[in-house]
């Protein structure tokens, strides 16, 4: 079994688990250290064990959240747009979006790329706060511990529908049910 070729193709055959399955190590940049075939009589076993360890370490990695600076983090407006914008980075949101938003009685309206949007503001559920997390020193590896910081905070979300008026059946409105239901499912029960 030519293990290094497999790394190149980004797929690993995982025999170490309960059933044979193909495992993808997503976004792997660095290959796992090549296996030293010390026991040349049973090379496969060493390889499989090594793969298994690799996967375990992927489960053992943690992502720390730096929250100490949260007090000084800027409060920002956040908008959930009904389209996928293929971009991560700066945008003149206040100049284009905020400046042209209109507040109607039951909805807000704006246009984006020539399309009419209707939206409304939602507050974070009681006892909850909005955080935007940003990865620092991104390694691109699944096996190493990662760190994210709180880059901004928010207490309400403006969500936009494409042309349809905001209403209580909008999925994002329904999703806001979750924290209260979670409290019922996870809160302590009486003895």
């Amino acid at each position: 079994m030519e293990i290094q070729n497999l790394f190149v193709s980004d797929f690993l055959i995982d025999f170490g688990h309960k059933e044979p399955a193909i495992t993808v190590f997503k976004r792997r940049r660095r290959p796992i250290q090549p296996i030293t075939h010390r026991d040349w009589r049973k090379p496969e076993i060493i390889e499989f064990a090594s793969l298994f360890t690799a996967r375990m370490s992927c489960n053992s990695s943690v992502t720390r959240v730096h929250v100490s600076s949260v007090g000084q983090t800027p409060r920002v407006p956040v908008h959930l747009m009904p389209c996928e914008i293929e971009h991560n980075g700066p945008a003149q949101v206040s100049q284009y979006l905020t400046a042209t938003m209109k507040d109607r009685k039951y909805e807000k309206t704006v246009s984006f790329r020539g399309r009419g949007l209707k939206g409304q503001e939602l507050s974070c559920p009681q006892g909850y706060t909005g955080l935007v997390l940003k990865e620092i020193n991104k390694t691109g590896s699944d096996q190493e511990d990662r760190t994210v910081k709180v880059s901004s905070v928010f207490d309400k979300v403006t969500y936009w529908n494409l042309e349809t008026a905001p209403n209580s059946d909008d999925t994002i409105v329904m999703a806001m049910d979750w924290p209260e239901l979670a409290e019922a499912i996870h809160g302590p029960v009486d003895d």
Binding site: P77, M81, C83, E84, E86, P179, A182
Partner: peptide, 30 residues
């Protein structure tokens, strides 16, 4: 950790675009 995820969504966060339109919920768990 649960993610609210709908296809064709992105965020404007302050003066930036975030392409990933998911909204993560972090709720206390038993």
């Amino acid at each position: 950790v649960k993610a609210f995820e709908e296809d064709f969504h992105s965020w404007f966060v302050g003066q930036t675009v975030q392409r990933d339109g998911r909204l993560l919920f972090v709720t206390p768990m038993d």
